[in-house]
């Protein structure tokens, strides 16, 4: 049984159907990358997995437990499945270390001292321990995103959802963020990421999924999807990426 199982996920906003029946299994320690044009449903799919969006039909199950539908303790689910956003979404009124420690202290019942110590240890791993007492607005975008990843990790999640986490960054800051994701993949973190960084997707993914207009069009190991895609649409999409100089 896969760690995350999506079956028949459908989602509409008023009369626009964003997801049209998505099936996807993600095994523990797997890195799955969602690619596809803007509006293909990558972000929505991620937000449906930890129920930031409610789904219209289908089921989401995490670790063998069905977590869609009524009567689910979503706050518990979300502690197990962390999320990192395109626009970082740090809490601007808190210092970096408090941003990271607030979850463990308030939700996991850790004592403040220990949580702050661990926050600084995690920050050290991403070379940001010297910024622990800073406020988010004092950091660069790349630094903020690294803090956001650490904030998610601090909750000791069993899986991470990464929603275009480098799309809002200046090009020279992308690498510092991707390096952390690379480390997480090496440590065996289960991850689903939506990204436009094809080179990175190719390198880090176990499975690449191509979404188009709310449908899962093609799925396979990165060598196959990027090397010899079966679907004409996938080829067309990748051609555009190559023309834009991004692959």
């Amino acid at each position: 049984m896969a760690f995350i199982e999506l079956s028949g996920i459908e989602k509409s906003y008023s009369n626009h159907q964003v997801l049209k029946g998505i099936d996807l299994d993600v095994e523990k320690h797997q890195v799955v990358t969602l690619i596809g044009a803007s509006g293909s449903g990558k972000s929505t799919l991620l937000r449906c997995i930890n129920a930031l969006e409610t789904i219209d039909s289908g089921t989401v199950s995490v670790d063998g437990d069905v977590v869609s539908g009524p009567g689910v303790d979503l706050d518990r689910l979300r502690r197990k499945v962390g999320m990192v956003f395109q626009s970082f979404n740090l809490f601007p009124h808190m210092t970096v270390e408090d941003n990271i420690a607030v979850g463990p202290v308030r939700l996991l019942g850790e004592d403040r001292e220990g949580a702050l110590r661990r926050a600084r240890e995690l920050l050290e791993r991403v070379n940001l321990d010297h910024r622990a007492r800073y406020y988010p607005d004092q950091l660069s975008g790349g630094q903020q995103q690294r803090v956001a990843i650490v904030r998610a990790i601090a909750m000791r999640p069993e899986a991470l959802l990464l929603d275009e986490i480098t799309s809002a960054l200046d090009p020279e800051l992308v690498a510092e963020v991707l390096n952390i994701v690379r480390d997480l993949a090496r440590d065996g973190m289960t991850m689903i990421l939506a990204t436009h960084e094809m080179q990175f997707a190719r390198e880090v993914s176990d499975v690449v999924v191509f979404l188009e207009q709310g449908k899962l069009l093609e799925k396979g190991p990165p060598e196959q999807i990027f090397g010899e895609p079966k679907e004409e649409r996938t080829r067309a999409f990748l051609r555009q990426i190559v023309e834009a100089g991004r692959l």
Binding site: L52, R78, M83
Partner: peptide, 28 residues
């Protein structure tokens, strides 16, 4: 709304989100 999303995605409930993240910012 992204502040709500960030807080809820960490596992904070609606009222916890209000108390720890939304109200302190709104007060200012």
């Amino acid at each position: 709304p992204s502040q709500w999303a960030a807080s809820r995605s960490l596992g904070f409930s609606y009222l916890q989100t209000l108390r720890f993240f939304i109200l302190p910012q709104a007060m200012r």
